[in-house]
């Protein structure tokens, strides 16, 4: 096993399990649709709330996609292979998370223009929202990976991962929605974007190490 063969096989596995990714995206659409249907479908309510709605849905969809990330590897024994392969375990985990991020976030971004129309998002803040998604979502994946690794030995772990990980997501959603609000009010928002980037970088450093600890403890 080499790093490049690892990346190839990860892409291949995701391609075979494309229904799961597809389900997460459908889940995203349904959550977004709940707000206009359930609360208020007028533009006066939706326009200021749009960024928050999109971010809530993104958080849940990403958590759905990430939650079972290591399960298959755990039950079919691939994790043992990773450990004995002689490659660095944190680096393998880092690569896996990046592959997941690419595969899940790319379609989300493609769908975003559609949702900004459906939620009457002011056109001025559209690009800020895209920026917050790009800068903030990596930290969601990295933090989620730790939760997924901790709970992979439990058969029904989805609710537990939500309970465990959602509190950690709060700063990301606060910074992101505040950045969009600041942009709408014409205030500077680059500081908030910098915070999002900092959180992503911090989790990029810490999460693979923590995930590796959890993986090793679960496999033995």
């Amino acid at each position: 096993m080499t790093y490049s063969s690892f990346i190839r096989s990860e892409f291949l596995v995701l391609w075979r399990r494309k229904q799961d990714i597809f389900n997460a995206l459908l889940f995203f659409i349904i959550v977004v649709a709940l707000f206009p249907i359930g609360i208020n479908s007028s533009a006066e309510f939706l326009a200021p709330a749009a960024a928050g709605i999109v971010w809530c849905a993104v958080m849940l969809a990403i958590l759905m996609a990430v939650e079972g990330m290591f399960k298959e590897d755990y039950w079919d024994g691939s994790l043992e292979q990773w450990i004995v392969s002689g490659l660095s375990l944190p680096l393998l985990i880092l690569l896996k998370v990046i592959v997941q991020w690419l595969v899940v976030v790319a379609p989300l971004l493609v769908m975003m223009p559609l949702f900004s129309e459906m939620l009457y998002l002011p056109s001025l803040s559209f690009w800020v929202l895209i920026m917050t998604l790009l800068l903030g979502s990596p930290s969601l994946f990295f933090i989620g990976a730790v939760g997924a690794a901790l709970t992979m030995s439990i058969k029904q772990g989805a609710v537990l991962v939500m309970l465990l990980i959602l509190p950690f997501y709060l700063p990301v959603i606060i910074f992101s929605t505040l950045a969009v609000k600041a942009a709408e009010a014409g205030l500077p928002y680059s500081g908030l974007l910098a915070m999002l980037l900092a959180m992503s970088l911090l989790s990029l450093v810490i999460s693979p190490l923590m995930t590796a600890i959890a993986v090793k403890a679960s496999v033995n």
Partner: peptide, 30 residues
């Protein structure tokens, strides 16, 4: 919520080694 997460995690894992590691990891992250 963070406390409840730690408690729920400890209660749903069976293996003691894993419980120890998992609780430590999630406390440090918190």
């Amino acid at each position: 919520l963070l406390y409840m997460g730690i408690i729920a995690l400890q209660n749903s894992l069976d293996d003691l080694v894993l419980v120890n590691k998992a609780a430590a990891v999630i406390s440090v992250l918190g």
